[in-house]
Design a protein around this nucleic acid. Structure first.
Length: 276
DNA sequence: CCCTCTGTTGGATT
DNA sequence: CAATCCAACAGAGG
């Protein structure tokens, strides 16, 4: 599900719902959600993590959640945690009388509401970390692709070598927050081929990408913050320009959108006009 | 009904 | 270094 824009919208929701309020109760519905590091594997659950989190967080005040890339950092009472949504993670809010939603992994009771962390596929995680949270949230990650967007030459310095530019864009250690969908979308806006090797990308192309990427991310945040996020798997209409549109005409040049594969992920692009 | 394929995540392994 | 595999699960398609 989530890339930088979705995680930012999630962050804002959690802030509105809980920041500055007491977390009356913590219920770790699925103990495997409390992970070592940011492992995507339920088997890497922290031994006794559920208990430790519950006792540290329950009765304490929720802080303002931080975001860096696709990662959230949140102070809950005396517990500092990183939250990663994985592929299908999301937070929803119900009233206190509601039954646990499907795929509930964690529940926070805040005043008259319950905040549920749902995660069908269980790649998502909650990871206890040592403070300060502001440092922990960025460990191992490059600059945030929106809040710290590099300019053209900085981008060129960060994304180097013979790797295809799309693969490099998704390398969270070089630039944090860009995933499969928005890498494809930003490259379309910048008219750069996803297969172009970083070392072959021209300075003007880097400039275009440095401009279009944060622009596109911000536009998506604005769009998604204004409405209820609905994911494609839930029957929503495809709002993307190239993603998921193989065979459809390119809105810029009329060519046919291609679907190829890079590092095991589907890449959508227009061979007709993504020539940079 | 069953099997196969796909997938908005990241990591370890080859 | 780069491609592949894997984690867990639902939904779609043959």
């Amino acid at each position: 599900m989530p890339e930088l824009p979705e995680v930012e919208v999630c962050r804002r929701q959690l802030e509105r719902w809980a920041s500055g309020r007491v977390v009356h109760a913590v219920d770790v519905v699925d103990p495997a959600v409390v992970r070592r590091g940011l492992s995507t594997r339920p088997g890497d659950a922290v031994d006794g993590g559920a208990q430790a989190l519950t006792s540290a967080a329950a009765g304490g005040v929720a802080g303002v959640p931080l975001r860096h890339g696709k990662r959230l950092g949140w102070q809950l009472g005396s517990a500092a945690v990183l939250v990663h949504l994985g592929m299908t993670g999301k937070w929803v809010r119900t009233d206190r009388a509601a039954a646990p939603p499907r795929f509930a992994r964690l529940a926070l009771t805040v005043d008259d509401q319950v905040l549920w962390f749902l995660d069908m596929r269980r790649f998502g995680s909650v990871t206890p970390v040592d403070p300060p949270l502001a440092a922990a949230v960025r460990v191992g990650l490059g600059p945030d692709a929106l809040a710290e967007a590099p300019d053209g030459s900085a981008l060129q310095e960060r994304l180097t070598g013979r790797r295809p530019i799309k693969v490099a864009l998704m390398d969270q250690a070089r630039l944090a927050g860009v995933g499969n969908i928005h890498a494809a979308e930003a490259l379309w806006w910048a008219a750069i081929s996803p297969e172009r090797r970083c070392e072959q990308v021209s300075a003007p192309s880097w400039e275009r990408l440095a401009h279009e990427l944060p622009m596109h991310l911000q536009r998506t945040v604005d769009l998604e913050d204004a409405e209820e996020i609905v994911y494609m798997t839930e029957g929503a209409e495809n709002r993307f320009t190239v993603y998921g549109r193989a065979g459809e005409p390119c809105p810029r040049c009329g060519g046919s959108i291609a679907r190829t594969r890079q590092s095991g992920r589907a890449t959508y692009w227009c061979p007709g006009c993504q020539l940079g």
